[in-house]
Computed example of a mutant assay.
Amino acid sequence: MDFVANLLPHLLNGLSLGLLFALIALGFMLIVGVMEVINLAHGSLFALGAYVAFTMMGWSPFAGLPLGVRYALVLALAPVAVGLFGMLLELCMRRTYGKDPLYGLLLTFGAALVIEEMIRVTWGSQEKTLLVPESISGAVLLGDLIYAKYRFFACAAAMALIVMLWLLIEKTKYGAIIKAGAHDGEMVRALGYDLAKLRTGVFALGTALAAIAGIVMAPIWGIRPHVGVDAVVPAFLIIVLGGVGSFWGAVVAGLMVGLVVGLTGAYASEWSLLSMYILFILVVTFRARGLFGKKSALDN
């Protein structure tokens, strides 16, 4: 019984981490699916979201507002600001479309380095802390167990955003266009839709998701220039682990990675990061296309 009681807080930590990993991966997957570009700047945009939120929390127009209202405004506005920045980055990427994918890969890698250095020049290299409202900070006592309130908030926020993204993709006209663009961009253009605008919108949405994940993760991981590396590597693994192009595959894989990292971090901290690579190797060894990946014509 004591073992179960000790295990529950670590399961909650792993669950919140997994949901946030899934959110980062879904933004990454949207860009890969529609634009066929592996956005290596995704992690840097994750970090940029946290820094923009940190700056907005101290803005003079928000100075007289209660902390809870300020946090809600920042949570809504900071991803929009990063999404607009993402649109500018997508404009730079347009010259790489239709060419060797290596060009897009190198451009986003260069963009990641530029964004990280821009963060250092603007905010410095010292770790920052994002203030959160008292209502979601501190601890809550459930029976004999103490839980961090913020972990519950992180879980709820990630689940709400994942459901909203699913509704957008599956239940709206724009979502149908996104899915069509992921399968055949030329057909989307032939049907009269502006493929350039679609790519810009998807890139903005993907970067906004990275930014909001960075904001929610900020009180857990802290805010530092290279924090994006901690986000983009799991995101890439999760997409492959869940099956490229599978929405719920990314969610399930995110939960698996979060739980494995959370539990090994609690009982064998030196294995914490290594555990997700071991999980990845085990899964792709027996199922190369990932958990929910569709069968290829090349498979026997």
Rank of each mutant, 00 (worst) to 15 (best):
I215Q: 07
P133G: 15
P61F: 02
A78E: 04
A218I: 08
L165H: 06
R189I: 04
A5C: 00
L11I: 12
T285S: 09
L205Q: 06
L19W: 10
I178H: 05
L195D: 06
A176E: 13
K294A: 02
G254K: 02
M118K: 00
T55C: 14
A156L: 04
L106Q: 06
G181N: 05
S246P: 09
L241D: 00
G243K: 00
Y267R: 02
A182L: 11
F247N: 09
G245H: 05
F62W: 11
L198D: 00
L161D: 02
F152E: 11
M159N: 03
G104K: 03
I24L: 15
L274A: 15
I119F: 08
G262E: 04
V240F: 01
V216R: 05
V163P: 07
A81M: 11
A112I: 00
L274I: 09
Y71W: 07
L8W: 10
L26C: 06
K295D: 02
I177F: 03
K173A: 14
A25N: 08
L282W: 08
S125K: 14
I146D: 10
Q126P: 07
P9I: 02
F21K: 14
H183F: 15
A231E: 01
A76K: 15
S272W: 03
T207H: 04
L255R: 02
M276S: 11
L291G: 00
F85Q: 02
D2V: 14
F62P: 12
K197E: 02
A204K: 01
N300D: 09
V283A: 00
P234T: 06
M118D: 02
A160L: 05
V140H: 05
H226N: 13
L12G: 01
P225A: 12
S272D: 09
A47D: 01
A112N: 02
I38A: 11
E116M: 13
L77D: 06
V232E: 10
K294I: 03
I24D: 15
M87S: 07
A235H: 04
A210F: 10
R120D: 09
G138Q: 07
D184Q: 07
G64T: 04
K149W: 11
L30M: 15
Y97K: 14
V229A: 15
T108V: 15
V34L: 11
I136G: 14
F153A: 11
S135T: 15
I239N: 07
V114Y: 06
F21L: 09
G110E: 10
G83T: 14
N300H: 12
M87T: 13
V32F: 15
H10T: 03
M29F: 13
A156R: 07
A111S: 04
L7H: 03
V227I: 04
L40W: 07
L26I: 12
L141D: 12
G228I: 04
I278N: 08
W271D: 06
T129V: 10
A266S: 13
A288Q: 10
S137G: 15
V251S: 00
G110R: 12
I169C: 07
F203C: 07
K149N: 10
L17V: 14
A235M: 09
F3S: 05
I177Y: 01
G206E: 01
E116G: 07
G201V: 03
D100T: 13
V233E: 08
K171C: 11
A112W: 01
F292L: 04
A81C: 04
E36Q: 05
T55R: 15
G290A: 03
T200D: 06
L40Q: 05
I136S: 13
M1T: 13
E36C: 15
G143F: 01
P219M: 11
I119R: 02
L141H: 13
T55M: 10
